[in-house]
Design a binder for these strands. Structure first.
Lengths: 246, 246
DNA sequence: GCCGATTTGTAACAATGTGCAACACGCTCT
DNA sequence: AGAGCGTGTTGCACATTGTTACAAATCGGC
């Protein structure tokens, strides 16, 4: 579940590098030696405009990344989950703020060292490229959602994408607030709430404890979301192999 | 003017590579040897789902890149201008259709060869990275626009971004139709039309021949667009130097 | 330079989503 | 267990944008 700036490597690194001379390192291996840090819910990891000095491996918890307009309007560009790498696609400065939604555990890595290793290690380059392509792909999905889907479609698309990313059976956890969802989906808190209620009333979902939702009729939900969303599992999986394009 | 998948290198390649042993090649130099092709207005360069076999250097003309929903709704992800490189940020397949808005001249380059050269030529790698970062940055701007700006702000932001990209003095050319603009801005043709009329009535812009607009009060327009847009000239320019992050 | 086709502009009306306010629910603290 | 607070829900009036329909302007041929 992200539209931006972070991409799960659990899949992207799945490519077979058996042919390489030494055991091919994966990007996430780089973080192995780094010590873990903990952020409390609500704490910022970095701010829009900060010099982009580090990249981050998310071990646990969820973050939101967002930009704010001068008058206070907020647009959340994505939610960052465990397994995602955050802060890669910047040149000089971070272009959004990253903030913990829940308690979060991360590992840091200096960008200079990161790009030094990329430069020295051919096997890492397709993986970096894969991250950036996946980010773009997610951003495109989000532009389609924001530009052309109605409120219900947006909410359902969101639920399905969370389900795909971190769903356990038919249940999903939504650790973020309704306001976070609204700022991600280009809606208001109230509209999100109304859509959730409406979906529940029709038996498409069931609202459990606070942040838990059960997707009761996956097929119907996919129908509403309009292609993409969950089908991507099949459609996009091949594209996630981290092999240099050929 | 793009939100997606293509980035001008005229700026990105500006970094001084004087220190390099041999004259450092720039990405766009790669296309030098390729023969130019012409597309008529309305012709597609490639389709969403096609195997991503080539990248393209746009010499002249404008293209639109878009995705279509099963029911026909269309979301334009960006407009591609001369100097942009198109088709880079894909793994296996193109994720959108690219179609000529005007007559277009392009040069092709096989992706396999492209990435081979990237692998062999360290100086090209920061440039590729810069392209991808600029694409992400543009996509983020667009998500903010689609998620949180109203119709007037969207239209003004668009006019300013066209002005920044290809404006001559206060005049801009809008080769695309109102429908194209609408599908790019998440609005309807009629709303775009209304906003343009309203801006003209208030003297902020002047509507010339069909596809020509004069920005009469830049300051006021920038105020409406809400930060970003045109200020980026100053803010983002440093980020466009194609140096490997350090 | 004229004619038909296409695109754009305008206006009346409808619908979706918003804004506000009241209220309910659930969690935490004591 | 109960008070208090933050968060979520719901109803209603309203605004912005979408729809529909039609008029006007522009373009592309001939």
């Amino acid at each position: 579940m992200y539209s931006q700036a972070a991409v799960s490597l659990t899949r992207s690194q799945a490519a077979p590098f058996a042919a390489a001379a030494e055991p091919a390192p994966t990007l996430r291996d780089l973080f192995k030696g780094q010590s873990a840090e903990t952020l409390a819910a609500g704490e910022a990891l970095f701010w829009e405009g900060d010099p982009a000095g580090q990249i981050f491996d998310v071990i646990s918890g969820v973050l939101r990344v967002y930009r704010i307009m001068p008058d206070g309007r907020r647009a959340i560009m994505g939610f960052i989950h465990p397994g995602d790498v955050l802060g890669v696609s910047f040149q000089n400065r971070y272009l959004f703020t990253a903030e913990a939604v829940t308690e979060v555990k991360i590992r840091r890595f200096a960008r200079s060292r990161f790009f030094g290793l990329i430069n020295e290690t051919p096997a890492l380059r397709p993986q970096l490229f894969a991250i950036l392509c996946d980010e773009m792909s997610a951003a495109q999905d989000q532009m389609l959602l924001l530009g052309r889907k109605n409120a219900e479609e947006r909410v359902v698309s969101f639920l399905l994408s969370v389900h795909r990313k971190v769903g356990i059976g038919a249940d999903i956890e939504l650790p973020m607030s309704r306001l976070d969802m609204a700022d991600y989906l280009g809606l208001t808190m109230e509209t999100v709430s109304r859509m959730m209620t409406s979906l529940a009333r029709r038996g498409l979902i069931a609202l459990g404890a606070r942040h838990t939702v059960t997707l009761r009729k996956l097929a119907a939900l996919r129908e509403i979301a309009g292609h993409d969303a969950e089908d991507e599992d099949i459609a996009a999986a091949p594209a996630r192999r981290a092999v240099w394009p050929h």
